[in-house]
């Protein structure tokens, strides 16, 4: 088994701050390090944009489990991705209440405005790499449908013209 120390050397871009954050997260689970798997995956993806093979190996070593135990999480949980996406991520809820309020039209409009095209069931990235537009399931804001998320920000009644602008111009 590779020791965490050796991995650090192979991963020069991991800052002490990143390491400290990872250790802090692991400390939340005194009964089982493995419980920190999702938190570390979030940390990795937030820092590097997606979960690479190196990320999977690093997290596995950190938690003293086999890399497959991390990979199987990345392939199961919809929020994790193994490849980069556009610089801005727009998620559009497609579930019933939002669909009743025009989610499909909103998704199409966002695609038209950004030039993203393809199968709407998959995340679509604009040709300039700026935007990724993705249909997601209910975002728990059905009373203000249709809703979207521009990166981490919830956009309510997102089909109003100024809200479409907000989706496109928002930057975290």
């Amino acid at each position: 088994m590779t020791s965490p120390a050796k991995d650090q050397k192979e991963a020069p871009s991991l800052t002490p701050d990143f390491e400290a954050k990872a250790d802090e997260l692991i400390s939340h689970y005194p009964a089982s390090r493995r419980s920190a798997a999702l938190p570390l995956l979030h940390l990795w993806q937030e820092t590097f944009g997606f979960v690479s093979g190196r990320g999977i190996e690093w997290i596995a070593a950190k938690l003293a489990i086999e890399p497959i135990r991390i990979l199987e999480l990345v392939t199961f949980y919809p929020m994790f991705r193994q490849a980069p996406i556009g610089r801005r991520h727009i998620r559009v809820c497609r579930t019933l209440s939002c669909a009743l309020a025009g989610a499909r039209e909103l998704h199409a409009e966002l695609c038209r405005r950004t030039g993203a095209s393809g199968d709407p069931h998959a995340p679509l990235t604009s040709p300039d790499g700026e935007y990724t537009i993705e249909f997601v399931e209910c975002l728990a804001s059905c009373g203000t449908a249709p809703v979207a998320m521009a990166d981490d920000r919830l956009i309510e009644r997102a089909n109003l013209p100024e809200k479409i602008e907000a989706c496109l111009s928002h930057r975290d």
């Binding site: 919809p78 994790f80 399931e137």
Partner: peptide, 10 residues
């Protein structure tokens, strides 16, 4: 008490 985030699975 700690916050634990899920990752998009109902």
């Amino acid at each position: 008490v700690f916050v634990h985030r899920g990752a998009g699975a109902y």
